[in-house]
């Protein structure tokens, strides 16, 4: 989920409105290719982007560890929502667990790995253009 990793790291450095609109735009583009119901990614990423911005402002410090934690939390939230909306009620318990263990949770790790370069890139851009 590279778009999600990029979105979360961007939202850590911008205001709530910008974060929400960024999530909305990324989600709309993801909706053109995803097999989820229409508007699912737009709404979900809008909320996740807003939450990421709010959490960094009010709860976490803005550092690498926070970006890793936020990326992981947002990825888990995204896949749980997607699982509930698309799969949970149409598959058996074994199939659901298989999907979560083989697809969803490994994506959390891959997304967190890519959060590291995205965070440093975003921080460099922020320091150059906004400070």
């Amino acid at each position: 989920m590279l778009p999600l990793a990029l979105l979360v790291t961007v939202c850590m450095f911008c205001s709530e409105v910008t974060a929400a609109i960024s999530g909305l735009i990324v989600g709309i583009f993801m909706d053109t290719a995803a097999a989820t119901p229409q508007g699912f990614n737009a709404v979900t990423l809008m909320v996740l982007g807003l939450m990421a911005s709010l959490i960094v402002r009010h709860l976490f410090n803005n550092n690498l560890l926070s970006s890793l934690a936020l990326c992981s939390l947002c990825t888990v939230a995204y896949y749980l929502l997607r699982w509930i909306v698309c799969l949970a009620f149409s598959a058996s318990l074994t199939e659901n667990l298989t999907y979560l263990m083989q697809t969803a949770f490994p994506s959390v790790i891959y997304t967190a790995i890519f959060a590291v370069p995205f965070y440093y890139l975003e921080r460099a851009l922020y320091n150059k253009f906004y400070k």
């Binding site: 909305l24 709404v43 807003l50």
Partner: peptide
């Protein structure tokens, strides 16, 4: 700001 975000959210939905 929150009202703006909420209105965009409702419009998209």
């Amino acid at each position: 700001q929150f009202k703006i975000i909420l209105s965009i959210f409702c419009a998209v939905v």
